[in-house]
């Protein structure tokens, strides 16, 4: 684990060194990376917190999440994240890791949906239980192959909906996801862009989440990542856990299937 983090950091540092030659302003970023080389990935702290939250009796029903079914059976977390989103018969819905955790917080612990999702992302001075829980659950798939064949008709439908949204252009800049993420070997400014229409590209994009984002000083979940993509496209933000986001995840995970997860990740 540590060596993976170090390799990622080394690669990131090399990338940054190039950028620094171009822009002196990235020197601060390098300093931050160096700091982290000494400390490891900050996401690992969140992972530990997530484990605690998973096992702790909480909520009106004073229950833990240990009986939560993330797709492989109650309490079975090893490799579960790598096989999400998937169709769940009990809710008759295709759910991703986050919508499933929230479902369990509601059904097992007795929280309301509103309570469970109130702090779905962290801000300085405001922690997010969901971020911690999802980081913990994600890490239980570290080294596992992404496996979302989308064979169930509902999964297949969501994959197609996600694909439609991926190519859908709108807004004052005529953007779609494909504009930046549909070609090989392109970059925005100095930022390299993954081609999410290929297995390798989608694998690189999907396999590291949840990920500690140095530029944000926080761990981001996949939902947060995709919702922010929409913001950058100058669209309104889709609702947390909305079907659009889950559909995009199904499409991308299906494309990425067969690639190996390395999570929690660390990103720009």
């Amino acid at each position: 684990m540590h060596s993976i983090v170090q390799a990622a950091l080394a690669a990131a540092t090399v990338g940054l060194a190039g950028a620094a030659l171009a822009q002196g302003s990235t020197m601060d970023e390098i300093a931050k990376y160096r700091e982290m080389l000494a400390d490891g990935n900050p996401a690992e702290l969140l992972e530990a917190k997530g484990e605690e939250l998973w096992k702790k009796a909480r909520g009106p029903k004073n229950a833990s999440l240990e009986q939560c079914d993330m797709g492989l059976g109650p309490g079975k977390l090893e490799g579960a994240y790598a096989q999400l989103p998937r169709y769940f018969a009990d809710t008759k819905k295709v759910m991703d890791a986050e919508s499933r955790v929230v479902h369990c917080m509601v059904s097992l612990q007795g929280f309301t949906q509103e309570e469970a999702t109130k702090n779905w992302f962290s801000k300085p001075g405001r922690d997010s239980d969901i971020e911690a829980l999802v980081t913990y659950i994600g890490a239980r798939s570290n080294g596992e192959k992404i496996n979302v064949p989308a064979r169930h008709p509902e999964e297949a439908r969501m994959a197609k909906i996600g694909e439609h949204i991926f190519y859908r252009r709108s807004g004052p800049q005529d953007f779609s996801c494909a504009i930046c993420h549909g070609q090989e070997g392109k970059r925005i400014r100095l930022q390299e862009l993954g081609n999410l229409t290929t297995q390798a590209g989608a694998g690189t994009a999907m396999g590291n989440w949840p990920s500690y984002r140095v530029s944000q000083g926080a761990v981001w979940t996949m939902q947060r990542r995709l919702i922010d993509c929409m913001r950058q496209a100058r669209w309104p933000e889709p609702k947390y856990l909305s079907d659009s986001v889950i559909a995009l995840e199904v499409f991308l995970q299906k494309t990425a299937s067969g690639t190996v997860m390395q999570t929690p990740g660390i990103k720009r």
């Binding site: 197609k160 909906i161 439609h164 949204i165 859908r168 933000e237 889709p238 079907d243």
Partner: peptide
């Protein structure tokens, strides 16, 4: 292709916003 999916996708997309 996928005209029916396109219609469904539009509906899903539109209803995903506050």
């Amino acid at each position: 292709p996928h005209n029916d999916i396109a219609a469904q996708a539009e509906q899903v997309f539109r209803s995903s916003f506050r």
